[in-house]
Design a binder for these strands. Structure first.
Length: 328
DNA sequence: AGTTGTGTTGAAGA
DNA sequence: ATCTTCAACACAAC
């Protein structure tokens, strides 16, 4: 379940591994995921574009491409991106460039070629079951003028439940999509200040102020990036009950809660996210934050802080977890 | 073996 | 408007 820390990990991986590469081809067996174009048009529009950078707002991934296009991806529940690469036999650079130009027509050939996985580790995480639901593949070429070598890579999208979303359009159009425009401030951005947070939770509207803080934290139109796992963890860290009415949170508590958002998300990013079930990084590796979860999915277990049994409740149609003794 | 729970988001219904 | 419910989908757990 990718939330901000998981998406941040993916975006940082993308920036390290595929910036500068060129997309030579694309394959998909579930085109419903591509929301704005037919497969044919999608292929046509993405071929031969260079990957400039990856960025993120909340849980939304944007891959900016040459020629003013942006690839917008939402991983939804089970989506994750894998980067694989094969080192080719040393060949002269001009020859490689010629080969990659033909890549569109040489699918069957390249499929039969032997591949070597990118991972330097002795364990191959790509073989894990959770990484086997690949429905979309971007074929990349990566050429180094300096070393006069080229390599092939693939960016593969594993998405068991097929909820994910892919959109390719002009950067400007992507930025102006309604679902992007209405996003609230990103929880890790500089604009998300304590002042801004106080404004959000104490807005002079009855419906806002009377809403449980556990729901407010997850609303992407208010604060972008927090989902079900981290709302529970953040509220536990701040010792505030998810049921507390947003408008009844004191200034002191708001500060504590704001600091908890920063603290928990930063720690989760450092630990490369939570792999409660499906989430994996671009090497197919699990994150580590599930090892330090305090309350999420810990109902009927003992609170590590006070020893009371942790409770679960439905909040906004989703399960929230909290310690009734520690969190008030 | 059929039912339920899982969580993100948008759309439909009230 | 604003709230709730459901659908998209696959699979594990009961």
């Amino acid at each position: 379940m990718p939330e901000l820390p998981e998406v941040e990990t993916v975006v940082s991986d993308l920036n390290q591994k595929i910036v500068g590469d060129t997309i030579v081809d694309f394959w998909s067996d579930w085109t419903k995921t591509i929301k704005n174009l037919s497969l044919k048009k999608f292929k046509r529009d993405i071929r031969n574009r260079k990957i400039l950078r990856a960025r993120r707002i909340g849980k939304n991934i944007f891959i900016d491409l040459s020629g003013g296009k942006t690839l917008y991806i939402h991983l939804k529940m089970t989506g994750h991106l894998l980067i694989k690469s094969e080192i080719l036999n040393p060949k002269s650079l001009p020859e490689m460039l010629r080969i990659s130009k033909q890549a569109g027509e040489t699918n069957s050939k390249s499929k039969n070629q032997k591949t070597t996985n990118y991972s330097l580790s002795t364990t191959n995480y790509f073989n894990d079951r959770v990484n086997q639901y690949i429905h979309h593949i971007w074929k990349l070429k990566s050429c180094s003028m300096k070393h006069k070598t080229c390599s092939k890579k693939t960016l593969e999208f594993s998405d068991m439940r097929k909820f994910a979303k892919i959109v390719l359009d002009d950067t400007e159009k992507i930025n102006n999509l309604p679902e992007i425009k209405k996003l609230g401030v990103d929880a890790m951005s500089r604009e998300f200040t304590l002042k801004k947070f106080q404004e959000i939770i104490s807005k002079k509207s009855v419906s806002r102020r009377s809403k449980p803080i556990g729901i407010i934290l997850m609303e992407q139109e208010l604060i972008a990036g927090i989902g079900n796992i981290y709302r529970s963890e953040i509220l536990f860290e701040s010792r505030i009950s998810p049921l507390r009415k947003s408008g009844k949170i004191t200034k002191k508590e708001a500060k504590k809660l704001y600091q908890s958002i920063q603290k928990v998300l930063k720690k989760a990013i450092r630990m490369r996210g939570t792999s409660d079930s499906d989430y994996r990084d671009t090497a197919g590796m699990a994150g580590n934050f599930q090892k330090v979860l305090q309350v999420y999915r810990k109902d009927k277990k003992v609170c590590l802080n006070c020893g009371i049994i942790i409770k679960r409740l439905k909040l906004g149609q989703r399960n929230a977890f909290f310690c009734p003794q520690c969190q008030k």
